Structure formats: structure tokens, C-alpha cells
Simulated scan of single mutants.
Amino acid sequence: MSDRKPPPLETYLAARTAEMLALPQMACRRRDCRRRNECYWHFNANGEPCCLNNLNAGQRRAFDELYDQARRIRDHGGWNERLMYASRYPIRRALEDAGLDIANTMIHKSDRKRWNAFRRKREALAPEEPD
């Protein structure tokens, strides 16, 4: 068993992930979040969007999996030629597509050209049917 702690939650990435899952509209009790259709409130102590407190364990696992996927793609996608994040399994590919959309919101202007080349190359890899 590993003693490593997961990295602290990044507020902006967590908010974009929650918005991808429609948590401001479906799970948040804050009126500002529901009206704006975006995560507006977060806890100062850990940067976590307030709506995450309203999730059950299974919903939180789904959020964490999508958050981790988006973080990995943002950190490694486009910078490593071998990591294309293009699974041949449809369910996994859907998770990767959502993670790519979230990570796309965080790419700096100076990296946009390389990022767009990565996206075009990835889109050219059509998902295959699993054996």
C-alpha cells in the first residue's frame, strides 16, 4: 500500500470538472452556482467546489476519475508523443474525451499551437472495436 497522498485539488480544474458533470445545476445548493451554470463557490481551506459535499461515494468516485483524467491529459497530453489518450474501449474513450475538453480550457496561449496539433493527431486515431 502506498503512503503517497494525492496532490491537492486545483480549484479551477475541479470547477471545470464539476461543470462538465453538470454539478452546479444538479447538486449545488448555492443559488449563484445554479443561476450562472458554473461553479462559483468553493471552500477556502482546500479549494474544493461546494457542490462536491453533496455527492454520495459513487458520484464522488466518478468526479475524482474525471478530474484525474483531465489533470493527466493537461500535464502530459501534447508534450509526450507516446501518450495519446486514445483508448480503443468506448467507455474509456468517452472519459478521455471529456478529460480532453476540460484540459483544453487550461492551456496557455503560448502552448495552443502544440496542443491543437496534439488534438488533431488524437482525433485521427479512430476508436477501434475491442476484441
Results as ranks from 00 to 15, higher is better:
44 N>K: 09
44 N>A: 15
44 N>G: 13
45 A>K: 15
45 A>V: 15
46 N>F: 06
46 N>V: 09
46 N>H: 12
47 G>D: 04
47 G>S: 06
48 E>C: 14
48 E>Q: 13
49 P>K: 03
49 P>R: 03
51 C>R: 01
51 C>P: 02
51 C>N: 02
52 L>C: 09
52 L>N: 06
53 N>W: 08
53 N>Y: 08
54 N>S: 11
54 N>Y: 03
55 L>P: 13
55 L>W: 04
55 L>S: 07
55 L>I: 08
55 L>Y: 06
56 N>D: 15
56 N>F: 04
56 N>E: 11
57 A>K: 13
57 A>L: 05
58 G>L: 06
58 G>S: 09
58 G>Y: 05
58 G>E: 13
58 G>H: 11
59 Q>G: 12
59 Q>M: 12
59 Q>R: 13
59 Q>F: 05
60 R>H: 13
60 R>L: 15
61 R>D: 13
61 R>W: 01
61 R>Q: 13
62 A>N: 14
62 A>V: 11
62 A>L: 07
63 F>V: 10
64 D>E: 14
64 D>P: 05
64 D>T: 10
64 D>G: 04
65 E>C: 09
65 E>N: 14
66 L>C: 12
66 L>N: 14
66 L>F: 11
66 L>H: 11
67 Y>S: 11
67 Y>D: 12
68 D>Y: 05
68 D>Q: 14
68 D>P: 02
69 Q>C: 15
69 Q>P: 06
70 A>C: 08
70 A>S: 10
70 A>Q: 07
71 R>Q: 07
71 R>V: 02
72 R>H: 04
73 I>V: 07
73 I>R: 01
74 R>H: 11
74 R>K: 08
74 R>L: 11
74 R>T: 02
74 R>P: 02
74 R>Y: 13
75 D>L: 07
75 D>M: 05
75 D>A: 12
78 G>C: 01
78 G>Q: 01
78 G>L: 02
79 W>F: 14
